[in-house]
């Protein structure tokens, strides 16, 4: 069997507020294979966002081990984790989270800057990726000059530009109208068909119905995996 792209082994994430313990994630084990298209669903407070942050190495678990492409992330320091986020994971957020002072092209070029590409290559790669998401003609625009759907496309281009194996999307259609949301979902399907492992956190059954696998969380535990 091919090793999982993402593996969570008995993950717990506790928050302590005085004597009170919040079990945001409580003994979660999951394996996600290369090229899967997975939705992580659950009501708010179910721990789905925390799972997403843990997979994205933005947060570390209280207990358990997370493997990204077979690598034990608990052994990595901040600098290594930053490298891992940069090279292997692309984030897409509900609120787009673009850098407002930069235009579309500069936004997409930023991960490449952290990866250490020279300027000329950065520009070529970013333009190519913007072309993929259909926004090449808007690359000199700043985020506040673009629609929600266009902003999310830029965010997707930014997630893709460094050619990571994993795309993590947190309610990517949550701030969009239905038609635009559909188009964004089409784009994710396209991305998945190109071999990227896509994990999407959502509470919208419409969205999860388009994914091939759905993991349901409640109170920090997996209640259904189908």
């Amino acid at each position: 069997m091919e090793p999982a792209v993402i593996a969570l082994e008995s993950i717990r994430k506790y928050y302590y507020m005085g004597d009170f313990v919040i079990k945001a994630v409580d003994d979660v084990t999951m394996r996600i294979a290369r090229g899967e298209y997975t939705a992580v669903m659950g009501p708010s407070g179910s721990g789905k966002s925390t799972v997403m942050h843990l997979i994205g190495c933005l947060d570390s678990p209280s207990e358990g081990t997370i493997y990204i492409e077979g690598e034990d992330t608990s052994e990595l320091d901040e600098e290594d984790l930053a490298y891992l986020r940069n090279a292997k994971i692309g984030f897409v957020f509900q609120q787009f989270n673009l850098l407002m002072k930069l235009n579309a092209l500069d936004n997409v070029m930023t991960p490449l800057m952290y990866a250490g590409y020279p300027l000329r290559e950065r520009r070529a790669l970013a333009e190519h990726t913007l072309e993929l998401v259909g926004l090449r003609d808007r690359m000199k625009h700043r985020p506040n000059e673009l629609s929600g759907g266009q902003k999310q496309r830029i965010a997707i281009a930014r997630a893709l530009v460094n050619d990571p194996s994993i795309i993590l999307a947190d309610e990517p259609t949550g701030a969009l109208d239905t038609v635009t949301g559909e188009q964004i979902m089409d784009l994710f399907e396209d991305i998945n068909s190109r071999g990227k492992t896509v994990i999407m956190v959502t509470h919208d059954p419409e969205v999860s119905s388009r994914c091939r696998r759905t993991i349901h969380l409640r109170d920090g535990k997996i209640v259904e995996d189908s």
Binding site: E79, R85, P111, R158
Partner: peptide
């Protein structure tokens, strides 16, 4: 702060 969060998410290390 948000900008810093975004930069970290897309791979900026503390040193950067």
């Amino acid at each position: 702060t948000t900008e810093i969060g975004i930069r970290k998410a897309i791979g900026a290390s503390p040193r950067r």
